[in-house]
Design a protein around this nucleic acid. Structure first.
Lengths: 218, 218
DNA sequence: TAGATTGTTAATCGATTAACAATC
DNA sequence: TAGATTGTTAATCGATTAACAATC
């Protein structure tokens, strides 16, 4: 029975990439061991939080020295599935879609974008950052051929749901949704929503607070 | 004394734009009142959560009918500061920066992007989505002239910290950081980090779970 | 050794959810 | 009126933080 999955430890999982970044950097600076304290300092977090988070990867540290950098990197990558390649498509090759196709960081961490889709005839048949672009109305034809695991949805919002339906119909189970539409999908499909408006809301509230402080201090 | 501010109710604030979207839609469909139950159904949330969140805007609903749509929209917009125009610059006019300059949604909600900055000589002096692009080494000259409140940072990560320093030096207090660098800023400056790798981490874990379920059910 | 750092167990904190009287 | 929906107060849940013994 497929019920909508809730990912537990979500906040910890979200911090892991930051840790990975710091640990890789420390390693490339010659550090064989990396302590939770160092990571915490670098990221303005509490050391205890870093230790708790790292525990979910199953890695064991050495008192006084920290965690073995190489093992820890491997463990985080494995926990996230970043040590395996995952085929993905980008649906909507506008500015945002193009940006994502070009992100080396994702490529380095297992995200293998093998095709893009767009409605613009001038893009169809071309390549963006090396990725071939297909007609968006060929989703039903191309997806079964190339069998991607992940779909990245970056179309204008009026087209989001109908393109999502095509994606789901063709058996893709993971959708990275960059539109501001709440997608309707069956329970068996998971959607990771990347909601820029929620970030903008936070930015706005912070900006208001900054303005208020300025006024108070003058 | 300026200490690093923690925004309280962050999860609620992040949900407000979604509510706003649903309420606007309901209103444009002729709804004079919108109930928390309706919003919750639309977004797969609990009604009680919606009511709690809406309470922070100060608006008062009517039992049996719901919240007055027009008042509620105004109240959310006001709470977020989206009813006022905020001048912003985009630092780094690559694909992502260009995408943000073109987002009508932000424009409609008070984000007024008045200038872009880039290192690419072919872009300097041109306009992207109507926004004039300046040389990135002119930050110190242009910012004082145009006095933006907000800087949106979309440069490649090796340049993130140095550009951030220029931004801070010129008195901007709110930074929307799309790089994967943890920026070092004084306490008086707030940074909203838009961390795509944390979203990618969540997507990856969800994808793993989907694959595992598939294997178990076969 | 002394002391920094780990991992575990318990306490705190904040957000979500439940219960329910009030009311249109 | 009856019943859906609100707002408030209390309970639950999960994440963060604190305390501290173990250890290299």
């Amino acid at each position: 029975m497929a019920t909508k999955q809730k990912v537990s430890f979500a906040p910890s999982i979200r911090r892991l990439p930051q840790y990975l970044h710091v640990i890789r950097q420390a390693q490339s600076n010659g550090g064989e061991y990396v302590s939770g304290t160092l990571i915490a300092n670098e990221l303005n977090l509490e050391p205890i939080q870093v230790r708790k988070d790292l525990a979910i990867t199953g890695i064991i540290g050495k008192p006084k020295r920290g965690y073995p950098a190489n093992e820890l990197i491997k463990a985080i990558e494995h926990f996230l599935g970043w040590d395996i390649s995952h085929k993905a498509i980008v649906v909507g090759a506008g500015n945002l879609g193009s940006a994502l196709m070009g992100y080396q960081e994702f490529k380095n961490n297992g995200l293998d974008i093998i095709a893009g889709f767009d409605a613009d005839p001038s893009k169809i048949g071309s390549r963006i950052h090396g990725v071939p672009i297909h007609a968006i109305d060929k989703l039903d034809q191309v997806i079964p051929e190339i069998q991607p695991e992940i779909a990245i949805l970056t179309v204008p919002s009026p087209f989001a749901q109908s393109n999502c339906d095509s994606i789901v119909r063709n058996g893709i189970k993971s959708i990275w949704n960059f539109t501001n539409i709440k997608l309707k999908v069956p329970d068996s499909v998971s959607v990771q929503r990347e909601d820029l408006s929620s970030g903008y809301a936070m930015l706005s509230v912070m900006t208001q607070m900054a303005t208020k402080n300025k006024a108070e201090n003058s």
